[in-house]
Design a binder for these strands. Structure first.
Lengths: 353, 353
DNA sequence: CTGAAAGCGCTAACAA
DNA sequence: TTGTTAGCGCTTTCAG
């Protein structure tokens, strides 16, 4: 149950050369005669020789592989981000290893440690909602593992970060609802540990403040599993609609949360009057009924940017000590779901935010 | 820019033992004194020793990793299948390496060869729509690489296969449209090279035949990129609606194709009368307008089953020569989009197919 | 019970 | 220009 590939040794034996000569010839070293080189190259080609990357990694301590940790690939934002990651990695000839944490800190850690042990050259991570103890990551980073965070980042580790402008995205979404005449805007969001949660909440609050709408704590609801557990979202919505200050609009943070919430509302027939918008990168917001107003993140760009920064660290000769945080713009795509029913035909289109 | 972990050598040196003794102690060999064992284990624990998996792979020729190739993770079917794969792999302590072909034969090949070279213990593959020359896979398989195909399979390689019952799924979907009174049912499908294309087309034909509806070649359209290129789908739809035999219903094969097609139709305002259904594993078919009738594949199960079969091959002592093809049931979930507008309130619900 | 040495495939410093 | 040798981290004969 194994498959031997040709090795440098086979070539050496066949050609009556030493392995080092073959090795050098293969990599086109200048100190090998054209004659020998040609011979080796041809034979290698003939037997379809492929260097063994495992042996190479062992020797060189590098793998030309980048490890990625996201919570869930079945999430529009992440799958688009991953495509961005791959697009850069591919033409810089890095391989991409994708793993999912499923929002579990434990899984996240196992994945990271496995990839580290397997010798990935760097890590692209978007933290899980459970992630609180980051000491293992910190340690890894201190030992020299290049890491770039994207989307869900942390301040505990000094490195590059790439995020969407969650603050402004939330601000504009909320303001849009306000302009529509909504006053009691609920914000349903994810685990308070996540950076994105705070950023979006801040944007939401800022919009309220700007428009002199008092902030009401009871309109903020956390779904710690980010919509992975449907009951959690249902409970939150029930609470919201049972409370004295029933919301007249809902603004959700998070891709999965938005879709799940939208679905439940639809089933609850509660959506009739409530304005609705949320963060999601779904491609099919215009196919829904009502058509969905969304805050869209530049997921592909975020993936690309993060990868560029990571490769930059990986390939840097000297330790990188200057780190930056890149913030990319979101866009608010206005459709039916957020429009006051009176004027629902009006103001539909896409707006930069 | 590197991070040294403790090695067996460090332990040996610290404890004044030989590396072989340490190695044996670590793996609990019976021929090591309890004394020494304890000493080694404790020290290893203390310095948080982790064996280097790269060195292990080099030596043992196995990695406890499974490689996966799918066309696109941003596809409901595949992301669900991957979750199935991971669920099994995880508790059999295999790691899963996910790669995307983006429907390119070239990318597929690069991915497969890279994973093979990296020493994955086995491969789970769903072929890309471009895949025609499978000789490299065949060769790999003959050299002993365990491979299980799922979803998009091939007969060129003798191994386990796990698929949905595409034939019956298509049959029931088509028949459902016929029962609704549709007569000119177009079938929009993917590359003719794919196994699923043929299976679904056959099911479609069989349903027509059963109901004595003549088969009309011009109602069959192939989108060779499976919906990745939107224009391709638009062209096909335009052709369809310009031809003399305008379809009165559309049945699509393929997840992405279904969604893209549905979206275009909606924009074309053509959907008004046309019945519509297709293969897709979207979770949000009921949020669309009109609500979408879908053929749903047991993606998670398919992933699980394929993984179980693969691990079975990997861990089998003797070469496996008996192969099976597992076929899992699809389900037809009937909603608005496929119902004749006259009776659109009627017959809505889920049906096993 | 423990150690020395070889070897997995490859590169590179050092010799020739 | 080419060969010899050591070594990356680990396991495993083979000796002691």
């Amino acid at each position: 149950m194994k498959f031997e590939s040709a090795t440098i040794k086979d070539i050496a034996k066949a050609l009556n050369l030493s392995t080092s000569t073959v090795s050098r010839a293969l990599r086109g070293s200048y100190e090998i005669s054209a004659e020998t080189k040609k011979q080796v190259l041809e034979y290698a080609e003939k037997i379809n020789y492929r260097p063994n990357p495992i042996a190479l990694s062992l020797k060189e301590r590098r793998t030309r592989a980048i490890g990625v940790v996201v919570s869930e690939i079945a999430n529009n934002f992440f799958s688009q981000a991953i495509n961005g990651i791959e697009s850069i990695a591919y033409n810089r000839s890095y391989h991409v290893i994708i793993t999912q944490s499923h929002e579990s800190a434990e899984r996240e850690r196992v994945n990271v440690e496995h990839m580290a042990a397997r010798g990935v050259d760097g890590l692209l991570v978007s933290l899980s909602s459970e992630a609180t103890d980051l000491s293992y990551l910190k340690e890894l980073h201190e030992k020299g593992m290049p890491i770039v965070f994207f989307d869900r980042v942390t301040n505990e580790i000094q490195t590059h970060k790439v995020i969407a402008d969650n603050y402004l995205g939330a601000f504009h979404a909320t303001e849009h609802l306000i302009y529509q005449g909504y006053k009691k805007i609920a914000h349903i969001t994810s685990s308070p540990y996540l950076s994105i949660t705070k950023e979006r909440l801040d944007g939401y609050k800022a919009a309220l403040e700007k428009h002199k709408i008092p902030f009401n704590e009871s309109l903020i609801k956390h779904c710690n599993h980010g919509g992975m557990i449907v009951e959690e979202v249902e409970d939150v919505l029930n609470e919201l609609y049972k409370s004295k200050t029933k919301p007249d609009a809902i603004f959700t943070a998070g891709d999965r949360l938005t879709i799940v919430c939208f679905g439940i509302l639809k089933r609850m027939k509660q959506k009739k009057e409530a304005g609705f918008t949320g963060f999601t990168n779904t491609q099919v917001g215009d196919l829904f009924s009502p058509q969905l107003t969304v805050v869209r993140q530049p997921a592909f760009d975020i993936g690309q940017t993060a990868t560029e920064l990571l490769i930059q660290i990986i390939e840097s000769r000297r330790p990188v000590t200057e780190f930056e945080t890149r913030t990319l713009e979101t866009s608010l795509i206005i459709r039916e779901s957020s429009l006051k029913k009176a004027n629902s035909a009006a103001e539909s289109g896409s707006v930069q935010a």
